[in-house]
């Protein structure tokens, strides 16, 4: 696994964006970038040096969880990061009703007007993922295996 730990400047930029967009003021993970501009976070006790040492004797496939994706326009939270930060997210939330949720959880985009950029979707009490809005529509990022499979 190719791992590039985030440098302090990169972290500072990321934290500032997370705070500004979503009100996330604390990120208690060891952060590193893997391929495709994905940022993962590890909450365990090993230091970065110990992780690198482990990589020399073991075929490391995954470390921690996928949290963020760097897009050209900014940062997007992964589907599961919205739960990891559920107690910290204070803004950038868009609440949806049952009809839109049914579309969303089946992998469909939803036609709603909201601010452009990454938006965290909430249905009832649940955070149900992070989409990207162009102002007219929220594009779906629910991973395939996490969608409701329609019967028949």
């Amino acid at each position: 696994m190719n791992v590039k730990f985030l440098k302090s400047g990169e972290k500072k930029k990321l934290f500032s964006e997370l705070d500004e967009k979503f009100g996330i003021d604390k990120v208690n993970y060891l952060l590193f970038e893997t391929g495709k501009d994905k940022i993962r976070g590890y909450s365990g006790h090993l230091t970065r040096e110990e992780i690198m040492e482990l990589g020399e004797i073991a075929n490391v496939e995954i470390i921690g969880m996928y949290l963020f994706k760097k897009e050209v326009w900014g940062v997007r939270l992964s589907h599961d990061a919205v739960h990891a930060f559920s107690d910290k997210i204070k803004k950038g939330i868009f609440s949806i009703g049952k009809e839109d949720f049914d579309k969303w959880i089946r992998g469909n985009d939803i036609d709603v007007k909201c601010e452009k950029g990454a938006v965290i979707l909430k249905y009832g009490e649940d955070f149900v993922g992070c989409g990207v809005s162009n102002g007219e529509k929220i594009f779906n990022y629910v991973p395939n295996e996490r969608r409701i499979r329609s019967r028949g």
Partner: peptide, 20 residues
């Protein structure tokens, strides 16, 4: 390992290092 990874993500597990 891919099945393991999918379940770790779904459950929000962040203290695991998975090896093959």
């Amino acid at each position: 390992v891919k099945i393991l990874a999918a379940n770790l993500e779904r459950c929000g597990v962040s203290n695991v290092i998975a090896t093959r």
